[in-house]
Design a protein around this nucleic acid. Sequence first.
DNA 1: GTGAAAGCGCTAACAA
DNA 2: TTGTTAGCGCTTTCAC
Lengths: 370, 370
Amino acid sequence: MSNARRSSAPTLEDVAQIAGVSRALVSLVMRNSPRVSSESRRRVTDAATKLGYRPNLMARNLAARKTMTIGVLLNDLHNPWFAEVTDGIHDAAEGHGYQLILASGRRTPRLESRALDTFLASRVDGIIVAGCRLPAARLDAVATEVAVVSVGRALPKTSVGSVTTDDAFGARLAVEHLYELGHRRIAHIDGGKGAGALPRRSGYLRTMRTLGLSDKAQVVAGDFTEEAGARGAERLFRGQVLPTAIFTANDLSAVGAIDVVERRGLDVPDDISVVGFDNTSLAALNHIGLTTIDQPRYEMGAAAATMLIDAINDRGALSDVSMAPSLIVRRTTARAAKAQQPATRSRQRSSVIRAAPTAPARSPSEAKTS
Amino acid sequence: MSNARRSSAPTLEDVAQIAGVSRALVSLVMRNSPRVSSESRRRVTDAATKLGYRPNLMARNLAARKTMTIGVLLNDLHNPWFAEVTDGIHDAAEGHGYQLILASGRRTPRLESRALDTFLASRVDGIIVAGCRLPAARLDAVATEVAVVSVGRALPKTSVGSVTTDDAFGARLAVEHLYELGHRRIAHIDGGKGAGALPRRSGYLRTMRTLGLSDKAQVVAGDFTEEAGARGAERLFRGQVLPTAIFTANDLSAVGAIDVVERRGLDVPDDISVVGFDNTSLAALNHIGLTTIDQPRYEMGAAAATMLIDAINDRGALSDVSMAPSLIVRRTTARAAKAQQPATRSRQRSSVIRAAPTAPARSPSEAKTS
DNA sequence: GTGAAAGCGCTAACAA
DNA sequence: TTGTTAGCGCTTTCAC
């Protein structure tokens, strides 16, 4: 560390001056227009580098009436799901010459709302909201001013486009998987008001009903965080009968729930099976080996960006696309024990034994770690 | 999804017109200046809401010659360390009235560099780079145009301020902890060119030397990712003698290494102890229970933002601050086995047994999960 | 307290 | 191919 800072950045005018040409010519060169003689081009670029000239984006965007920028609102930087979706958005946007500006909502509607205001004030050409929890009406209002697409949450009856997975079907896959393993008492720790939480919850309930398990269905409140998963599991332990399986609204919650189960001296999956949702990198960690429902996160991000950019350029309308989820079986689910009720149920954290599945690894279809 | 989009946003002029006042007055109201009569204020705000007026940030910033925005370059959205640092930056910046615009470098110097260019072109008032891998010279050049502070990596002899932890000391804590548990053959999977990787590596080497363990020191190349941790561990397994302990450059790598160790049929910590670095939320997951070196991530982010903002407003100079790391003992480290060489060393992934520490939990100082 | 006028740095017709 | 001329929407003196 030491010091030095510029006084005032050079402008187009400065460059034009020392290159001995007009401002318009410099402008053309900066946007590398083909209709410039190579001689002029050289003189301009020379002058520019000599001055350390850098076009002022604000001035450019103000004059051009577009920004070639898309604002991306991420609900929770702590959840790897968002990183993975963002990669997809990034690559697709870059391919079309668009820049990204990211904002973090920190799972707080107030901050999400403010971030949207900033995007609008910055006149971004389009907005992608990922896992956004804001009311549909709010998003629809934003969509009045600029094209918006939502990832991870459908917004029917609004002008907001969406790319989601079929959450209800994903929930069904999870429940059916557990059912086939012999589980009946299957609980669900939900995602509260989070994006996609509702269809996952109703998908769970519907499937339980279809399987004739309505009386055994049990939903506890969560919010897509690890802490919520832990709290949810604690809640289950406080109940009369313990479930033999837990289906959580996302991977983060699943990890929280597993911790609690093991802390209670029970084993996953021998005593209680757990299925997550998302198939984030977290689930894929071999050390966690979470059975979960895969969402094609990267592809979802890419699809959202492509749809948005097409809409911006009037090459297509916003729509609602739903991608197929799939079951990824790893090591947190196993055949239900004979006894409906797990054997041990010590309260204190006796030495925690995490054994491998007794059965040989069931189709360890380790999907791409993204 | 359906449709509708605005034609052209209302401007200050429009508002002034229908409020029956001058543009300047509207401007004052928008920036809520105190020298406006409440009557005028009311008329203006009424007109503004009626029109759905929203100040154009580009125009404002262009005219005001400042943006009240700080650009934050995050090296890797997939690593929770960045989310945690960002929270600190966010809160501190907000407290001073600054906005954030985030950019993801995706662990790619080319993208990091481009993001910096965008920040400069956008005329942000200051820049924070977190875990940035760009050459010091490049960052120093940027620092010529705007105040820059780096989190997680010191940049001596440049104009870039920095907030780091004492990485070398952290490495020493890790090695000494292992030494006290009886380990001698302690390997290090490093962070390559990553931020902070160098001091961690040299801290490791120096401590090994101090402990008279130079001949047993072994460094394998990594890059702060889980994959690199796994590759590094594989490399160790290919060696003549296996270490009894591994110190990795960060938590992500530690998790990768642990996976490989267990895949090889060995136990962590009974056969091989592992220590990470960062104490991210990942390490704190009970299910992982990684012994690691804590960095006060939130505080580092906040300190960086505060330092930057002070510098922007000439209330202080950029400097290099280093925060103290600390050892967090969880469950991936244990007393070294009697035999120098671990017993089993099966090649195939025999049933993986993950046992709890045989010794009762050693000071489970679960630091704040941030 | 309010208005008029002059830019901020650039793009976009249109002329030449 | 290059230069001229208007703005883009806002802030900021500086009068009144």
